[in-house]
Amino acid sequence: MSTAPRLLRLAPAAGRGHIGAKRRRLPMQTRNKFFDDMSQLMTNAMGLAQGAKTEAETAFKGFVDRWMADRDFVTREEFDAARAMAQKAREENTALEARIAALEAALAKKKG
């Protein structure tokens, strides 16, 4: 009957471990408190860092929003509305220029 090898460590015998004393075999400890504590510490530190990152992003976004509000920037909707009004005014100016040119031509015919 063949068994798979197991990880074992030798523990000292009950008699204070004098030379030549027989040792009994114990299974290796699979968990180490130091590493568990370090793992928990790192996990907590990452959570803290994530919280600090979120806090910093929120504060920076608030700062940028306040700064932009103080600069009297317009919204995209306001800009589009102003651009549409300017385009309409240009079209009206072109139409009025054509009308004035026609009236001046008619006046010149009448005088001449």
Rank of each mutant, 00 (worst) to 15 (best):
R16W: 14
V64I: 12
A49L: 12
Q50A: 14
A14E: 12
G47H: 08
M46F: 14
A82S: 10
K111N: 11
I19H: 04
G62D: 06
P27R: 07
A45G: 03
D37P: 01
A82L: 12
Q40A: 13
R90F: 10
P27N: 08
F60C: 06
I100S: 02
T75P: 06
M46Q: 15
E77A: 13
L48R: 15
G15Y: 00
T54Y: 03
A21S: 12
R6G: 00
M46R: 14
T54S: 06
T3V: 01
D72W: 15
R9V: 04
P27M: 06
G62F: 03
A49R: 14
F35P: 00
A21D: 10
D80L: 12
L7T: 11
E57P: 04
A13K: 00
A49S: 04
R83Y: 09
R90N: 12
F35K: 05
R16Q: 11
A101D: 07
L10R: 00
A101N: 02
F73T: 15
A105G: 07
Q29F: 08
M1H: 01
A82I: 08
D36T: 07
A14K: 06
T58P: 09
P5A: 01
E92I: 06
L8R: 02
R16L: 13
G51I: 03
K88G: 01
T54R: 11
K33L: 11
R71C: 14
R83K: 14
R25Y: 09
L48H: 15
V64R: 05
A89E: 08
A95V: 00
F60N: 07
P27E: 07
W67Y: 10
E77R: 06
T3A: 04
G47Q: 03
Q87G: 09
H18V: 08
K110F: 11
E78W: 09
M38H: 08
L8A: 04
T43I: 07
M38T: 04
A86C: 07
N93Y: 09
R83E: 09
E104P: 00
A86F: 11
A98M: 02
A52M: 11
A21H: 11
T54I: 08
G20W: 04
V74K: 13
P5F: 01
R90A: 13
A49C: 05
R71D: 14
K61I: 11
G112H: 05
R24Y: 00
A56L: 07
S2A: 03
V64A: 13
A81E: 13
A59I: 11
A82P: 03
R31D: 10
G112P: 03
A52G: 04
K111E: 09
D70G: 15
S2Y: 04
F35L: 13
Q50G: 11
Q50L: 13
F63R: 15
A108L: 14
P12S: 08
T3N: 02
D80V: 10
T30F: 12
F79Q: 15
K111L: 12
E97H: 07
R16S: 11
R71E: 06
E55M: 08
R6D: 03
K61E: 15
A105T: 02
A81F: 11
G112F: 03
R71T: 10
P12W: 06
K22N: 05
V64T: 08
R99N: 04
D37V: 05
I19P: 04
A13R: 00
R76M: 13
E92T: 07
Q50M: 13
A89Y: 02
R9C: 01
D72K: 15
A84L: 02
T43N: 12
T75E: 01
Q40C: 07
T75S: 14
L41Q: 15
